[in-house]
């Protein structure tokens, strides 16, 4: 092998290369993630300048004033968990069907067909529902059939439909992965021991798919917390989320310090969710499921 001096030299050269390769990404993270988030923290402690924007101060007034936007927090904290739950209930049977009941020949194609909509324009897909639920879409059809006048758009229900439509693919995928890994012999063993199909499902399949369920729920919940487009287009200013309050605070009323405090509380709520998630997956011995 090489002499000590050369290996020392090459180790030094390697370190220099590593630093060089990491530098652009590191600088990017620093300038466009760490610093901006630090600015949000600093601004959230300041006060609004008379003309809008930021004036330096050091107070918790913005945080104490958070209840002024209580409706946005309430809508988010009610509709995000309900949306996650409905997504889960809709996604589980499909993931089960794909992982257990479909022949491997079509499995991949069918799975890709579920995921494809998630990567196509979110704006256009949400707009499609505006079109369907709007006055001349389904309600007109219902009226023609004879159900009388029904209002669908700009209600919590329309927001919920948009949520399920937008995020269902994200829920199916991790559940599918955990169900596909499941050892089918366990189910045969349960059946041999006289267990009914329902009982096998409840005692074998469901607990073993828990990591996928938890991952899916967390992903959907986190994205829902920061949602803006669905409540904006399908809630029409009547059912608004924290995201809508943030757009209002930053782009309309230009109350940056208060907006920063709202943004910080959103991030804190999310961090709490992630921590809870890590605790839960560790308890179920789950591996993390890559989504991309």
């Amino acid at each position: 092998m090489a002499k000590a001096a050369t290996s020392d030299d090459s180790a030094k050269r390697r370190r220099r290369w590593t630093a060089l390769l990491l530098a652009p990404a590191g600088l990017w993270f620093l300038a466009l993630l760490v610093m901006p988030l630090a600015v949000v923290v600093v601004f959230s402690l300041g006060e609004r300048a008379p003309a809008g924007g930021y004036a330096p101060a050091l107070s918790l007034a913005n945080y104490l004033n958070l209840p002024a936007r209580w409706t946005a927090f309430r809508n988010t904290l009610v509709l995000a968990p309900i949306g996650t739950l409905v997504c889960l209930l809709a996604a589980y049977p499909l993931a089960y069907f794909l992982a257990v009941r479909t022949s491997p020949r079509y499995r991949l194609l069918l799975l890709i067909l579920v995921i494809v909509p998630f990567w196509t324009s979110f704006l256009i897909r949400t707009y499609a529902w505006m079109f369907i639920l709007g006055g001349r879409g389904l309600p007109a059809l219902f009226e023609w059939i004879g159900f009388g006048e029904i209002r669908l758009i700009n209600t919590p229900l329309s927001v919920l439909i948009g949520i399920v439509y937008g995020y269902l693919p994200l829920m199916v995928f991790p559940i599918f992965v955990s169900l596909e890994r499941l050892d089918k012999r366990l189910l045969e063993a349960a059946a041999d021991l006289g267990s009914t199909p329902w009982r096998s499902f409840r005692q074998v399949t469901l607990p073993l798919s828990a990591p996928g369920v938890i991952t899916g729920c967390m992903l959907v919940f986190i994205l829902l917390m920061g949602e803006y487009l669905i409540p904006q287009l399908l809630g029409g200013g009547k059912v608004f989320f924290i995201g809508n309050a943030l757009v209002d605070l930053f782009l309309q009323s230009r109350n940056w310090p208060y907006g920063s405090a709202v943004a910080m509380s959103l991030v804190i709520l999310m961090l709490a969710t992630v921590t809870l998630y890590l605790r839960l997956t560790r308890r179920y011995g789950g591996r993390d499921v890559s989504l991309l």
């Binding site: 993270f29 993630l33 901006p36 986190i222 917390m225 943004a263 959103l266």
Partner: peptide, 25 residues
């Protein structure tokens, strides 16, 4: 540090990234 930053960049909602970039810039 890099692992942490990568996950934060993916996990922080787009709307917060947008706001933070706006006011910082």
């Amino acid at each position: 540090v890099f692992d942490g930053l990568t996950y934060v960049a993916i996990m922080v909602p787009g709307i917060v990234i947008g706001i933070a970039t706006l006011i910082a810039l």
